[in-house]
């Protein structure tokens, strides 16, 4: 079976500073991997490379079989990104925001209407559909941005520090959505500081430090979070 993500010898240099050094990584379809690492380890850079926001200095990345430098548009279609930025336009209503991004991903007409309605229900914003996003509370914005990221049914979800600033309500919505049947099959790659929550959700743990993976293992190898922290805590500094 084709891997959802396949990274070979990936490196990225900013100016003269190497940020990622010859990374290799394969993610199977449906896998939920979380990348931990100290600040400046290159976690965000890794996500930006996979999502085609920046180009690699060397090596290759394939997402669902598409090369990120050769077919970036096909790659982007596969990806749903949830970042600490909300990616929403304040002057547009919730519905208009979803409409706009839906069309940008090539969803149209009835299908888009249905999809928007369904997602607004799932994130609990159906009654606020026609209100401007700038009037939303932080938590509401976060829930809407979750809906935005899932709109085009991405096969690969990239989660950049999703818990930073996520309020309890939004966290719950988020975790429920991730477990929902619709997204059971999608691959998830999360970058996080929050060891406990990240560990709880994932089935594979990676630790990135100074541009290299220093640990790669499965959750089942540990009896629980305590054991993981004892064994791997030292790699996180």
């Amino acid at each position: 079976m084709e891997n959802a993500v396949s990274i070979r010898e990936l490196s990225k240099v900013f100016g003269k500073t190497p940020v990622l050094k010859a990374l290799d990584l394969d993610l199977k379809k449906g896998e939920f991997a979380v990348v931990f690492g100290p600040n400046g380890a290159g976690k965000t850079t890794l996500l930006k490379l996979i999502s085609t926001l920046i180009e690699p200095t060397g090596g290759s990345v394939f997402v669902s079989g598409f090369n990120i430098t050769e077919e970036p548009e096909k790659v982007r279609k596969e990806i749903g990104m949830l970042s600490h930025d909300s990616y929403l336009y304040g002057d547009l209503t919730a519905k208009e925001n979803l409409h706009f991004f839906g069309k940008m991903y090539g969803i149209n007409g009835q299908e888009l209407e249905k999809r928007i309605l369904q997602l607004l229900n799932e994130v609990g914003l159906a009654t606020k559909a026609d209100e401007r996003v700038s009037t939303f509370s932080r938590g509401m914005k976060q829930r809407l941005s979750i809906a935005r990221a899932l709109l085009h049914r991405p096969s690969l979800l990239l989660l950049d520090e999703p818990y930073t600033g996520l309020d309890p309500g939004a966290s719950l919505v988020f975790e429920n959505l991730l477990k929902s049947p619709e997204f059971q099959g999608s691959t998830k790659l999360m970058v996080s500081h929050d060891l406990e929550r990240g560990f709880a959700l994932c089935d594979r743990v990676l630790i990135l430090n100074k541009g290299k993976f220093v640990y790669d293992g499965f959750k089942v190898n540990f009896s629980g979070f305590q054991e993981f922290r004892e064994k791997c805590g030292s790699m996180l500094t």
Binding site: D85, Y87, L88
Partner: peptide, 18 residues
């Protein structure tokens, strides 16, 4: 400026358009 307020420019660049 309106595009940068909530990282929307990044969101646009993540859309499957050139």
């Amino acid at each position: 400026v309106m595009e940068t307020e909530n990282g929307c420019l990044e969101a646009l660049m993540l859309c499957p358009v050139d």
